[in-house]
């Protein structure tokens, strides 16, 4: 464990909690893409299948359980508890355009052709594109509440910190996980445009980030 990965995991946890609290306290999921949250729940489900078969550390196990629980709680709030505030009309991204290439690629590129490895690879590739429905929804509505942008900021920061973690691990222990690194770089690139808007617009203290 290094400080970059720990900061990344904390940033990821903060992002998930920010979103969950926003929905719970405002009792509304307006402006939130339920599809992205479904995809994130699928990412955690397919990645943490080893939760009960492999014990790495208390931290690892606890964080996996927390991420699974919070992501399912978020999906529950969106599609069940506050479903009448779910903006399905603007949450219109065709997720099959993401799932088909990700499934295909995880069958092409993986470390071993075993169910666990292919599902893990699927979860890595899926995580890179899971935010697309949310970013698409923001471009469609033309704006995002500032709390939603904070959520996106910490979510993008988490993977950017993981890249620093991979650089650090490469130089200190020769660790290099090509699938995770390539996918993580692609994922972070998707956020760059948003990061620019976030820094130039939201940090100036405007309540909503309206896209140009």
């Amino acid at each position: 464990m290094n400080v970059f990965r720990l900061a990344g995991d904390v940033s990821h946890l903060v992002a998930i909690i920010i979103l969950l609290l926003k929905i719970w306290r405002s009792r509304s999921c307006a402006g939130i893409s339920g599809k992205s949250q479904l995809l994130f729940a699928l990412v955690f489900t397919t990645r943490y299948l080893d939760l009960f078969t492999v014990y790495i550390s208390a931290y690892n196990t606890i964080m996996k359980v927390v991420f699974l629980a919070l992501s399912y709680a978020t999906v529950y709030l969106i599609y069940m508890r506050f479903r009448n505030t779910y903006d399905s009309e603007n949450d219109s991204f065709r997720v099959e355009f993401l799932l088909v290439p990700v499934i295909g690629l995880s069958f092409l590129e993986h470390y071993a052709f075993t169910p666990m490895e292919v599902l893990w690879t699927f979860s890595i590739f899926l995580e890179a594109v899971a935010i697309m429905p949310q970013l698409f929804m923001i471009t469609k509505t033309g704006e995002a509440e500032s709390i939603t942008t904070h959520y996106l900021f910490f979510l993008g920061l988490y993977r950017a910190l993981y890249i620093a973690n991979w650089v650090w691990r490469y130089h200190t222990e020769g660790f290099f996980d090509q699938i995770a690194v390539v996918s993580g770089v692609v994922q972070t690139i998707f956020y760059c445009d948003f990061f620019y808007l976030y820094v130039t617009k939201v940090v100036q203290g405007r309540s909503k980030m309206s896209l140009p």
Binding site: V54, I56, K64, Y111, D177, Q178, A180
Partner: peptide, 10 residues
């Protein structure tokens, strides 16, 4: 080929 590795990362 790429070798698998213990998945200690979240």
């Amino acid at each position: 080929r790429l070798h698998s590795k213990p998945k200690d990362e979240l």
